[in-house]
Simulated scan of single mutants.
Amino acid sequence: MECVFGLVGKGFALVVSDTSAVHSILVHKSDEDKIMKLDDYKLMGASGEAGDRVQFTEYIQKNVALYQYRNGIPLTTAAAANFTRGELATALRKNPYTVNILLAGYDKETGPSLYYIDYIASLHKVDKAAFGYGSYFSLAMMDRHYHRDMTLEEAVELVDKCIIEIRSRLVVAPPNFVIKIVDEGGARELHRRYSIGDAPLAAE
Rank of each mutant, 00 (worst) to 15 (best):
V4Q: 02
F5H: 05
V8N: 09
K10E: 15
S20R: 15
I25Y: 11
V27R: 15
H28K: 14
S30K: 12
D31M: 03
D31G: 06
E32D: 13
M36A: 13
D40N: 13
Y41V: 08
L43V: 03
A46I: 07
E49N: 13
R53W: 03
V54C: 01
F56V: 01
T57P: 00
I60M: 01
K62T: 03
N63F: 00
Q68K: 13
R70M: 10
T76R: 11
A78D: 09
A80F: 03
N82H: 13
N82M: 12
R85P: 10
E87S: 07
A91T: 10
K94F: 11
V99R: 00
N100K: 05
L102E: 08
A104Q: 00
Y106I: 01
D107G: 01
K108N: 03
G111R: 08
Y119L: 06
S122A: 05
K125V: 06
Y133G: 10
Y136A: 06
Y136I: 05
L139I: 14
A140C: 02
A140K: 14
R144I: 04
R144D: 15
Y146K: 06
R148S: 08
D149I: 07
M150K: 10
L152H: 06
A155K: 05
C162A: 14
C162Q: 12
I166E: 03
R167M: 02
S168G: 01
R169C: 00
N176G: 10
F177M: 14
V178H: 09
V178L: 10
I181L: 15
D183K: 08
R188N: 06
I196Y: 11
P200M: 13
L201P: 02
A202V: 14
A202D: 13
A203Q: 14
